[in-house]
Design a protein around this nucleic acid. Structure first.
Lengths: 131, 131, 131, 131
DNA sequence: GTGGTCTAGACCACG
DNA sequence: GTGGTCTAGACCACG
């Protein structure tokens, strides 16, 4: 389900982390769901298990999944929405950089909001198809 | 004027590129302005001229500045606000990733718009102080 | 395969860029082919890896190759034949300069076409030897 | 009459050399014509006389003009159309590079010929307006 | 003075 | 192994 893209400049393990987080937000993966084992996913994507392992470790660090030794990896059922000033500052910096690029690309604030709405709709679209 | 941040994961030359683009948007640097020479800026920041050179070459490629050999570097008078499908796709991907992070950090769409407004105000703040 | 020419006024990294693009057009390098690693090519040509790296980065910017960190560089499978007014204007200027030189060298339009045909034949020669 | 362009990557003295050669080909400057003195041209273009001097030296080397000490600089009346193998090889290399770029820009041989015809018409247009 | 290129190293992240 | 960044120098062309 996660699609790797060679043209994407993000490292493969980051693409995996982001891809799984996207599926969680879209509701494709739900709390308690077991995800593919490291070897299964590595085989499916034709990459080394090392890379998948790294992604899963990062996902566990971010409390997106929990690893149960000898059993598998599961989507965390604890809502991990802990707001932190630190994280907000980090996101604000990223957003500022994006706004600067947005300007230099010739787009304005209104168009930014439009695209954000489009993205938010997209992120929730899958959930409704399951209903 | 540009401040380097050692904790920032972006390479130094990217921080320079972003920093100068930010000053252009804020109106601190205006079309036609000559910016610091490679050696001057390198000295000021205690980095190798090579790194500044790389930043300036990237800025020229993006048409933010023009480099005149033997003379110096100048903020481009031709605004490079040409919209391109390609750039929009790139920005949309970045924005999607950011929205996902935003969600996992526990914030919603409304709060995103608020922060964007704050950023837009900030980017125009300097200009108004000159009036 | 790429041959550097010390008498050539073009910088080494530009000679590399042009040389590889020539091989792509001749069909010697095909989409998907992995090219020599930075270190391999640098060793072969007895130049610093930095210079090869710069050439490869320029080739990636031009979408001739794609660079995959930790893996290598590959000839891009997506042909980058997007016409742009801007590029055409640039080429027209170069061509005008060349025509002026051509005149001062004592040659006429007919001879120019002849040489162009010769060049076009040359650029496709390799491909036909493979058939 | 010669127009300098900061966005042009050629050094100023080369732009001068090329500009004057273009005027000779167009018939704007004719054999025997006296051209502006170094100081006149430098003043007109707001550049240092040093740079103009360098351009004139290069033009004399190429036998486009002749300098008469104490009198001035004149367009050479000796047709300087000496074909040389060496010059042809140099032009062929330039032309090959241009053809490669032409291809990567998405244009073909036919379009190249069209643009060449357009350029040749342009270079002779001025002459006919004088008739 | 200016920017452009290159060397010969180093260290890092990724796979 | 791979590419990416950076240092601390050097030399060059241009103005």
């Amino acid at each position: 389900m996660v699609i790797l893209n060679l043209h994407d400049k993000r490292p493969i393990y980051v693409q995996l982390v982001d891809g799984i987080k996207e599926q969680v937000i879209k509701g494709i993966l739900k709390p308690g769901d077991q995800i593919l084992s490291i070897r299964q996913l590595a085989g499916q994507l034709s990459i080394t298990p090392n890379t998948v392992s790294r992604a899963y470790q990062e996902l566990e660090r971010q409390k997106v999944i929990i690893s149960v030794k000898g059993k598998g990896n599961y989507i965390n059922d604890v809502p991990n929405f802990k707001r932190s000033e630190e994280k907000m500052e980090e996101l604000k910096k990223l957003l500022t950089q994006l706004c600067i690029e947005w300007n230099f690309a010739g787009y304005n604030r209104g168009e930014l909001i439009e695209v954000i709405d489009e993205i938010y709709n997209n992120l929730k679209k899958e959930e409704s198809t399951c209903q």
